[in-house]
Design a protein around this nucleic acid. Structure first.
Length: 581
DNA sequence: TAAAGCATGAAGTCTTGT
DNA sequence: ACAAGACTTCATGCTTTA
């Protein structure tokens, strides 16, 4: 092997003389979340209204005030009042909350990297993210989330009680809201919840699986210890793939990692939640029987992204990236707010895919709306327009005018630095593709946050199917130093993106690039382990091409041409686990 | 020739109603 | 408990344009 280019980068050249089979579609990850949060309002209609407007990004106080002013029957006036309030009141909290992530403020001193020196990375205590804790709201939010409370519910509690409120009051507020919701749901579908007290995960119904989680969360306050599932009792057959994500449970993992797998080295695997029947079951069986954690990124940003994660990381004491991203489209893309018609009740976007809608779609919408002339289009037109908007993730950018998202909006929503995928000879089409395949950074970072305390001096990472470097960006934003990163990525444009980011952020560690995971041999792995003293984390999401519902042509399941690369992930993880345990 | 534009459903999950 | 309808999806491949 030889190194080339910058001194901080080594290019491994396995075999110089043969062609490369092109596979590979990287990945990224995500999450999901709480659908609705508790409300304290007594009137059902009032409560619904409050939810609606809070979902749009207004604070509970503002909404209540507006409802009192305009009455609960006049939604249009309420919205106007709220918009007026938002425009006139200079709310530092809101500003802090909606401020786009600032990635460019790190002052990193440049330190020479020596390829030959494996031990001295010249890493000093970093000031990364130091000034992110500027807002009291952010800090309070962070503490609450650390305590295990859902973002959205914590957010509403802070809005309601004020950021300076006593933590116990905030916690009480959240618990009360959760309890209220729980009771409500029990009353509504009691038959499905009879088996709550038994935690046998092998029940065939998704509801039962979730009920177990729900119970554990609900009881957390009175009984600190989370419910644990005895691995012996788990039949490792996952009932179905979907896992009823819309139930909106915050990621709370009840599964217990067997002792043999607990502790480093850690691995982290990601793929689409809604895969063909049996796929997750199989993946789970390969990855040591660990159950997937299904999460929807809508808890962490303004767009949905339902993904499953299998890992052996601890789940206690996770914390989110700061600043927290806006959770509504209207906050994330403030310029659209004034054009958002009241009959379009979307507050979050659907999944960001690898391609965008055609101009004919937005043109049709414009024409349809102009033709009906009225300020409020008739229900059938509303219906047609809404369906298209949801299908193609369109946002309002003018009167009767919708538009597809721009690549930089993809970047922001997914938690990447602005212009992360811009320039360097990359086409717009490729940007959409790369971003559509990427991790949602905030989501993955939430899971990886537990590594920060454990590795104050940094981590050695084996990053498979790296894509545009979602894992690396997540670790970096967490302030976890990257000592040695071996990154396998088949796409040259993606490798270029990661390398540019690596250099641009002045990483002090070493980046090793590998083109094809299939070329990674046991010898390579042994070599790296010897050289670095072992990997701390093996992370990656194997290609989802053949799993995704968007694929109309070759949704062939885990054995598909691209998705079968999962077995490469397993092979490599397994080698690392064997070698380091 | 590379990039952009565009049309192409089915498989599951989730919701709602009975 | 069940059925029917509503809803969403890390995409592919052909055609057109620059």
């Amino acid at each position: 092997m030889h190194s080339q280019g910058s001194s901080s980068r080594n290019q491994y050249d396995w075999d110089s003389d043969d062609e490369i089979e092109v596979f590979g579609m990287p990945q990224e990850s995500n999450v999901h979340g709480v659908e609705e949060s508790g409300s304290t309002c007594s009137s059902a209609k009032n409560s619904k209204l409050i939810h609606h407007f809070v979902g749009m990004g207004f604070s509970v106080e503002e909404v209540i005030k507006a409802i009192e002013e305009d009455g609960e029957d006049n939604e249009e006036n309420i919205l106007e009042t709220l918009l007026t309030l938002a425009a006139t009141i200079d709310d530092p909290m809101r500003e802090a909350f909606t401020e786009p992530c600032d990635f460019a403020k790190k002052s990193v001193t440049t330190i020479d990297i020596s390829d030959d020196d494996d031990d001295d990375y010249g890493i000093t205590d970093s000031e990364i993210e130091e000034d992110a804790f500027t807002s009291e709201k952010d800090e309070t939010l962070s503490i609450l989330v650390n305590m295990g409370y859902p973002f959205k519910e914590a957010l509403i509690a802070i809005d309601k009680c004020g950021p300076g409120a006593d933590l116990s009051d905030l916690a009480d507020f959240i618990c009360a809201a959760q309890l209220e919701k729980e009771i409500e749901s029990h009353l509504q579908d009691r038959p499905n919840r009879i088996h709550d007290t038994s935690l046998h995960v092998h029940k065939r119904s998704r509801d039962h699986y979730y009920n177990g989680k729900k119970k554990s969360r609900m009881c957390r306050k009175s009984q600190k210890k989370p419910l644990e599932i005895d691995m012996e009792e788990i039949e490792l057959s996952i009932p179905t793939n979907g896992f009823s994500i819309a139930k909106g449970l915050y990621p709370r993992v009840v599964r217990k990692i067997p002792d043999k797998l607990a502790g480093p080295p850690y691995f982290y695997y990601e793929n689409v939640a809604i895969a063909p029947v049996g796929v997750w079951n199989k993946i789970s069986n390969f990855l040591y029987g660990i159950q997937p954690e299904f999460v929807d990124s809508k808890l962490f940003c303004a767009s949905t992204r339902k993904r499953g994660y299998i890992h052996n990381l601890p789940t206690e004491n996770r914390f989110p990236l700061l600043p927290i991203q806006p959770l509504t489209v209207q906050e994330a893309l403030p310029n659209t707010r004034q054009w958002w018609p009241k009959w379009d009740r979307r507050t979050q976007l659907n999944c960001l895919l690898t391609s965008i809608g055609a101009a004919t779609v937005t043109e049709k919408i414009r024409r349809d709306l102009e033709e009906c002339g009225a300020e409020t289009p008739p229900p059938n037109v509303q219906d047609t327009v809404l369906k298209l908007c949801k299908k193609w993730n369109l946002v309002w950018v003018g009167k009767n005018k919708v538009a597809t998202l721009e690549p930089d909006e993809y970047e922001m929503l997914l938690g990447f630095p602005k212009d992360h995928t811009r320039g360097g000879g990359i086409s717009r089409t490729d940007r959409y593709k790369a971003l559509g395949n990427a991790f949602q950074v905030d989501t993955v970072a939430y899971h990886l946050s537990v590594l920060k305390d454990q590795y104050p001096n940094g981590v050695n990472v084996l990053s498979l199917f790296s894509g545009i470097g979602g894992a690396e960006v997540a670790l970096h934003r967490l302030g976890i130093k990257l000592k040695n990163v071996v990154s396998a990525e088949i796409s040259e444009v993606n490798r270029n993106i990661l390398r540019c980011w690596w250099e641009q952020t002045e990483q002090r560690g070493n980046l090793f690039e590998v083109e094809d995971v299939q070329r990674v041999t046991s010898e390579h792995i042994s070599h790296w382990i010897n050289r670095f003293g072992g990997f701390d984390l093996v992370i990656g999401g194997s290609p989802c091409n053949n799993l995704s519902g968007s694929n109309r042509v070759s949704r062939d399941g885990l054995e598909g041409e691209h998705s079968s690369l999962f077995y490469e992930y397993y092979r490599i993880v397994n080698e690392v686990m064997q070698a380091q345990r």
